[in-house]
Design a binder for these strands. Structure first.
Lengths: 156, 156
DNA sequence: TGGGACTATATGGGCGTCAATGGAATCGCC
DNA sequence: GGCGATTCCATTGACGCCCATATAGTCCCA
């Protein structure tokens, strides 16, 4: 299966449009999705985005609960209620809603970050610091790993 | 299959009319439903609404119980008995009945909230707090899922 | 191997159409 | 003949769609 990888930083034009990186577009195309399915990430100032694969994932999560059950309604409100299917124009651009931009703190540029089956959209500066933090953590973890004689396996 | 997603807040005009969001209208149209099937949500200050798909779901729910059983009668009364089929005007607007507006506490604006196979209509402020609650619950559940070794599609 | 043509991607802008909303006009029932 | 309800028309702002330009990477060919 195709995966979203790498990261790209692109600018919004005066009308708030952003090009979806061409590599991502072709993956979405093969996924058979016209447009872009996205929603605010739960505990990060970022936007989760993808195609049918991502939507199926959300659906599976909700489908585990019986119709009309309390839990299902709550999930549906939080997940479907905040999801959007953005249209793309002939040039492969989209327009982020104000809600999404506010959640991620996006103003005039965005960073697309591939996460495999989906990708995230960040405000570039926030992504940079997020990436630095993640890198630090990995570096720290490597130090610990390096001092061990046996293969990793222990958590923390 | 098309799903109701995202949320839109629209205002009632002086005659109590509200536009049904265009994306929802097109889904209802494809569903082959003229008008809007709706009823007060069972345990929330909101209105459940949809088309043929929603009606079929309710029918399936009721059909699970034996004819003339107490449960079936109760469900039928609660759901069918309170359902309404609202007409839409040429511009895709509807007029909520006083009963429905009272149930949801609606006065001069409403929030349409996509839940996949159906959507709900809320008083905007109430929806905001409900959404916050639902999001917290999902976030909490995701933590639990994240601690499992085989996490099903958890929302990042 | 270096240069030039070509292609594709990102970006900018103009314009027509549609959606949301407001109000007027018409029809119906009492 | 009122009065509410329904249908029709008007406005405005946003959005979709189209075309233009630039820049970078690629390919071809001398």
């Amino acid at each position: 299966m195709d995966r979203f990888v790498a990261n790209y930083t692109l600018r919004l034009d005066s009308k708030g449009r952003v090009s979806i990186p061409a590599p991502y577009r072709s993956i979405l195309g093969r996924d058979g999705f016209d447009g872009l399915y996205c929603y605010p990430a739960l505990d990060r100032p970022a936007i989760d985005a993808g195609g049918n694969a991502l939507m199926a994932e959300i659906e599976a999560l909700i489908a585990r609960y019986a119709p009309f059950s309390e839990a299902r309604e709550q999930f549906a409100i939080a997940l479907y209620g905040t999801s959007e299917t953005l249209k793309t124009d002939g040039e492969g651009r989209m327009i982020l809603s104000d809600t999404l931009k506010a959640h991620a703190g996006i103003t005039d540029a965005v960073a697309f970050v591939g996460l495999g089956h989906k990708f995230q959209i960040w405000e570039p500066k926030r992504f940079a610091s997020q990436l630095a933090e993640a890198t630090d953590q990995v570096r720290e973890l490597r130090k610990q790993l390096g001092s061990q004689s046996t293969a990793p396996g222990a958590r923390e």
